[in-house]
Simulated assay, not measured.
Amino acid sequence: MTAPGIELLVVEDSEPDTVLIQEALEEALTAAGLSFRLHLVRDGLEALAFLRQQPPFEDVVLPDMILMDINMPRKNGLDVLHEIKTDVGLTHIPVVMLTTSAADTDVALAYQWQASSYLVKPTGYDQFIDAIQALEAFWMGAARFPPRV
């Protein structure tokens, strides 16, 4: 089991999806007895500023994992993924693509650019909770995060 204090970054521009993700994570992680801090940013440029600890994110702790949408304004999730995985200071962070896109081209590109996994967002709340619980069981139960740098 991963030690308490998991730092999660969610990159999502849709307010309803953000609320759903937040509720599902809180339910799954709390039920598993894990403490965590959830950071929310609304687009790819904010995500990169957060990860590079640029204003207004100078004092943040780098996340242990990133959950990221693809279709966002200003900079899409695939472009952000590529930047993360080509930055030696960030490449160690697991990135889970959590998106509505089931397009083969998006899936292939995400894995080509080293996404840790690719989840298509379920449409119903119960299915969404199930998906987040499966994510929690693997990433916060069976797997181990890289040490914080």
Rank of each mutant, 00 (worst) to 15 (best):
T86V: 10
Y125W: 14
W139D: 03
F36A: 01
E136V: 04
R74F: 07
A49N: 11
P146K: 08
D64W: 00
L8V: 08
T100C: 07
V80A: 13
A110E: 05
L81Q: 11
D69F: 02
M72L: 07
G33C: 14
M72R: 11
Q127R: 06
L109V: 11
P73K: 12
D104E: 14
Q112G: 05
Q133E: 10
V10Y: 00
D17P: 02
G77L: 14
G77K: 15
H39E: 03
S116I: 06
A143S: 12
V149C: 10
R74D: 01
D130A: 12
S35H: 15
T100P: 01
P94L: 13
V107F: 14
V61S: 13
L90S: 12
R42C: 06
T99A: 08
P147N: 09
P63T: 02
V61Y: 03
S35V: 04
N76G: 04
G5S: 03
E136L: 06
D79T: 14
E12F: 01
D106T: 02
R144W: 07
E58T: 05
G124C: 07
V95Q: 15
G124M: 10
T30Q: 10
Q53R: 15
A47M: 05
T100D: 11
E7M: 01
D59P: 03
P55V: 06
P56Y: 09
L67A: 01
T91S: 08
P122C: 05
Q54M: 04
I70K: 00
D106F: 13
P94Y: 13
L38N: 02
A31W: 09
H92D: 04
G77N: 08
M72Q: 00
R37V: 09
V41K: 05
V11D: 00
V88L: 10
Q54P: 02
R148D: 04
F50W: 04
L40P: 02
L38Q: 04
A103G: 01
E7N: 01
L67K: 01
E15K: 15
E83S: 05
L51S: 09
V96S: 12
V80C: 07
A28L: 09
L78G: 02
K85W: 14
A31H: 14
E7Q: 12
E12K: 01
P122A: 10
V41R: 05
E83N: 06
F57M: 06
P56M: 04
M1A: 12
F57Y: 15
E27K: 06
R148E: 06
P16S: 02
L51H: 04
D87S: 11
D69M: 04
T100Q: 09
G5K: 01
P147I: 11
R42E: 09
L135I: 07
R148P: 12
L45A: 09
P56R: 13
E26T: 05
H92C: 06
P73Y: 10
W139C: 00
T91H: 11
H82V: 03
L51P: 12
P146E: 10
F57R: 06
A32M: 11
V61F: 03
D79M: 14
G77D: 15
F145E: 08
A134H: 15
L38K: 07
N71G: 04
T99M: 05
W113R: 07
I129N: 14
G141Y: 06
E7H: 04
I93P: 04
V96E: 08
V61N: 09
D64K: 09
L25M: 12
D87E: 06
V41W: 02
